[in-house]
Design a protein around this nucleic acid. Sequence first.
DNA 1: ATCCTTGCCGGTAACGTTGTCGGAATGGAT
DNA 2: ATCCATTCCGACAACGTTACCGGCAAGGAT
Lengths: 341, 341
Amino acid sequence: MEKPATIKDIAKRLNISLSTVSRALRNASDVNPDTKKAVMALSEELNYQPNKLALSLRQKQTHTIGVIVPNLDYVLSLMVRGIDEVALEAGFTVMVCQSNESFGREILNTRRLLESLVDGFIISVSSESKSFEHFKKIQERNLPVVVFDRVTPHLKAPSVRIDNEEGGFIATEHLIEQGYKRIAVLAGPENLGISNSRMDGYLNALKKYKIKKDPALIVHCDFNQDYAYFATLELLAMKKRPDAIFTISDRMAIGAMLAIKKKGLRMPEDIGLVGFNNEPVTSLVTPSLSSIEMPSFELGKAAAKLFIETMHNKENMDLEEKVLKPKLIIRESSQKSPIKN
Amino acid sequence: MEKPATIKDIAKRLNISLSTVSRALRNASDVNPDTKKAVMALSEELNYQPNKLALSLRQKQTHTIGVIVPNLDYVLSLMVRGIDEVALEAGFTVMVCQSNESFGREILNTRRLLESLVDGFIISVSSESKSFEHFKKIQERNLPVVVFDRVTPHLKAPSVRIDNEEGGFIATEHLIEQGYKRIAVLAGPENLGISNSRMDGYLNALKKYKIKKDPALIVHCDFNQDYAYFATLELLAMKKRPDAIFTISDRMAIGAMLAIKKKGLRMPEDIGLVGFNNEPVTSLVTPSLSSIEMPSFELGKAAAKLFIETMHNKENMDLEEKVLKPKLIIRESSQKSPIKN
DNA sequence: ATCCTTGCCGGTAACGTTGTCGGAATGGAT
DNA sequence: ATCCATTCCGACAACGTTACCGGCAAGGAT
């Protein structure tokens, strides 16, 4: 009952060779049905489990995917669950590492996963990362890499993300339709792709409705509630203060909301507010927060599927780029007029 | 540049034997300083990384810890980060699996991790689990197991948790001190240990202040916002309705809060409310939610440390039981009178 | 009878590493 | 000159598995 049974044990007890047992346990071609049955029965009895280590060593595949995420907040942990789901189904195990938004940590994670001999990577990059050499090292080893959610043009790899530009656009358009005139945007770190895309969407919406862009209304700040709080206070202290704010994350929207309340302003009457991610908290705050919903779980699943495809095709696969659509969820914080239609 | 370098490559290029290279790379006793230097230099140049698979196979240790958690909500993902921190430091890799509060999934996770030949487990049990045979199988294989946060007396293993009874006690005592008279408790599933402990704390507080226990005020419901919402509606529909509610999680408190608002009651004037976990959302809702804070990150670290100790001692270690203290955070939802002292 | 196919099986090497053992060379002590 | 200890090194087996190759017997076709 102590040590797990091996092929050798089975062979010995059945007085046949290792090779035969090995064959019997797998494809079973080239092996007498009777011996096969005997092997199966005994392996059942001994509760035989093939040793993954030996297997991996032999066939140079660990059936493990390394997943690197900047954190495990609501959205990302949903995505990871999606990845997990599909990976498990396909016979893969996933190893999840958090970079904590730290560049150094991301490098370390990469190295560790590489040492663990994962078969490939599914990555969402940290907001702090400006260099991507550590990821290129992965590709030099010829391992498949898929990036998701936080993609970057500096890393040539198939990717899955949502249409951030579209998200920024519909959020802003919604605010314009509600009659807001001076719309500010609270963006994230300057080098973060998703932040810039969402901002591009914001700019596109302004352009479409012929509203002049005002640089003073575009604020970069850290992906963080407190920073957003102070940034909003500054916005509201302007001579011609904005009458609406689009933030590129719900967390930042919450910070903004606190600042707005602090100033004694009302939402949606004085200020309109739209966040991004549609985290559960959006419906818990007062007023409830309009936000952009994204199909996080699906996105995770898509990333894992793409990974598995990439893995099989390997060479001749053009860098596929899968884009999912976001959706506007209107709540109290931005709904000035009653819902039309 | 393609395949990673092996000991064999080094040996060949240096015209020495595998064994010598192996020794040179490690303890270095029994090897000429010169050859050692040469080996080191070449291994540096070839960027040699020992193959973990071969190593694990050889010495029957994967340096991997299997972590099973019911989910990755705010509290648990903090704990996992704590585990990660300590494990990494000690040279372990962690594999995190979510059971999604499902018994079947938990069994599957266990099996998969066992197949992956992890060196041991750090577990927080799913709320659905009533049988623990799958975990006992781990122990039969003589692998160390540590349970954390959600512990259960049915599993004999070293554990780390917070003092849930104390948490329930201080929450209830606080409500009593604020002058609330009919205090209800929204508990979780009946078989969930942490829920029952918190409820025991509640009962102890009643006893201390000579308040008679009223079974009608003790409600079990699922660990879930919606259930809590409906359960609260029922409580509030009673002839002699409670004037305070202690819920054993913040999520349930949010559900209760929505129900209280729905009924047009005010907090803290009409109803006092205290949650548990001190999630960030507590300070975002209106009114802000009093809650019991626990040292999640520290708890994770303690669990990993305990695991490593257990691993080394193995046999003669009495089942250590580490208990951390929770802390009451008072916010608007329960603060009737101004803060005393 | 001879030959060739087919069905079944075993031996061996290999994946990359470490541990054990034995042995060659050196040098100092007798 | 002989002996023994020391220093350094290589051969070999092993961890558990699979891939490749070759072989033996049975049986059908010639």
